[in-house]
Design a protein around this nucleic acid. Structure first.
Length: 227
DNA sequence: TGATGATCATCT
DNA sequence: AGATGATCATCA
């Protein structure tokens, strides 16, 4: 059993998957202790802790990156909080929404498609009643969207981006989009960024992010675990 | 109780 | 300000 985090990136998809399987069943407390990292008592002020701890254990480059977590392998890493019955507890952040600079972008070159081309999902039993240190890492899932999922994602993305390019960003709520939707994404309500207004003018609005709905990630987990 | 909208830490 | 990692907290 691996007792120390790796000091280099995995050289293959199999090597990455093996690492992920190697930490399955362990708690965040154990993984933190073996890495000499203190696990917070709660995530109120450490919301990205789980993701960063698993990045360390899998050998992703430390710090935030602009593309995939394992660019040489073409794989994005996502931790997904579930309850003890395998139920997805939160939506999954995909990437920032470019409200001005990429509005003419096409689906096939989009950041969303790039990020979701191949994803290593690692479930973590993360019910709020369970202290972070006692939360358990689950079996990894290497996911590639099937044809139906690809079609839904593309359709949602195109619909959302069309609204943005038409100056309807303020009209977009998180209800729009079957699998992919848009919600605010910022450090606080003060943050503003440029976007296209209803009359074609530049307006200031709150930054947004793309997120996967819970039912979408749930179905992909179910498929992987044959539930 | 779940979904929506808001927020936290950190780095570039 | 933009982007990474997400979870929190409120309200319907």
């Amino acid at each position: 059993m691996t007792r120390i985090p790796p000091n280099s990136p995995p050289i293959s998809v199999q090597a990455l998957f093996d690492r992920a399987e190697g930490i399955a069943g362990r708690t965040l407390g154990e993984l933190g202790a073996d890495a000499n990292i203190v696990v917070p008592e709660h995530f109120k002020q450490h919301k990205g802790f789980t993701g960063q701890l698993l990045e360390l254990w899998l050998g992703a480059t430390a710090g935030s990156k602009q593309q995939q977590d394992f660019p040489d392998l073409g794989i994005e890493l996502k931790t997904i909080p579930i309850d003890h019955q395998g139920k997805v507890l939160e939506t999954t952040y995909v990437c920032y929404v470019h409200l001005l600079s990429h509005i003419a972008e096409q689906w096939h070159t989009s950041a969303v498609r790039n990020k979701l081309g191949q994803v290593l999902f690692i479930p973590v039993i993360g019910e709020r009643a369970i202290p972070p240190a006692q939360r358990t890492v689950g079996m990894p899932i290497l996911w590639q969207p099937n044809d139906q999922e690809k079609a839904i994602l593309q359709q949602d993305w195109e619909e959302l981006m069309e609204q943005i390019s038409l100056g309807q960003i303020e009209s977009i709520t998180s209800k729009l989009g079957e699998a992919l939707h848009i919600r605010p994404k910022a450090a606080n309500g003060e943050a503003l960024t440029d976007a296209i207004g209803a009359s074609g003018q530049i307006i200031q609005t709150r930054p947004r992010g793309f997120y996967l709905r819970k039912n979408f990630t749930q179905s992909l987990l179910n498929r992987a675990f044959d539930l």
